[in-house]
């Protein structure tokens, strides 16, 4: 299966993750694994919306695992190691007022994913890849 999902504005953020969550539930994947996937994807989706004016999500589901890639053409991340640090955030005040921007997202994606990678180029964009296995 392959889905290309648009990632829209902040108020819409989560549509793609919500759809994927529904599909995984329909496939009978254990709730704990569905939750991990949904949380990781939602954090990536939020990042694309908050830090990079939106992007897209590509999702591949096989019998054994799901691969989610969230891709944007935003400003990119100059220092990925710094961005991965808990508590580091460049989110603007209006995002903090909405309850986000604590610098927890990327570490949380890593914690919930079985495989996680991030590629980013300043001025070009960012690609986050998440793999979650169904039977581990």
């Amino acid at each position: 299966m392959n889905y290309v999902l648009p990632v829209g504005d902040f108020l819409m953020a989560g549509e793609a993750s919500s759809n994927v969550k529904k599909i995984l539930n329909q496939l009978g994947i254990p709730p704990r694994i569905v939750k991990r996937t949904a949380v990781a994807m939602y954090e990536a989706e939020l990042n694309a919306v908050i830090h990079a004016y939106g992007g897209r999500a590509e999702v591949e589901i096989t019998k054994d695992f799901i691969v989610v890639e969230v891709i944007d053409d935003g400003p990119g991340i100059p220092d990925i190691e710094l961005a991965m640090t808990e508590g580091y955030s460049t989110a603007p005040d209006e995002i903090r007022e909405m309850g986000f921007g604590a610098g927890m997202g990327l570490p949380n994606i890593k914690r919930n994913a079985d495989e996680f990678s991030i590629e980013s180029e300043v001025g070009k964009g960012t690609r986050v890849r998440i793999v979650v296995y169904f039977n581990r």
């Binding site: 919500s18 969550k21 939750k35 949904a38 939602y42 909405m98």
Partner: peptide, 15 residues
């Protein structure tokens, strides 16, 4: 104390 669609989203993802 937050009332936004993203609170519902967060709850949705977190069961």
């Amino acid at each position: 104390g937050l009332v936004s669609p993203q609170v519902i989203r967060t709850a949705e993802m977190m069961d």
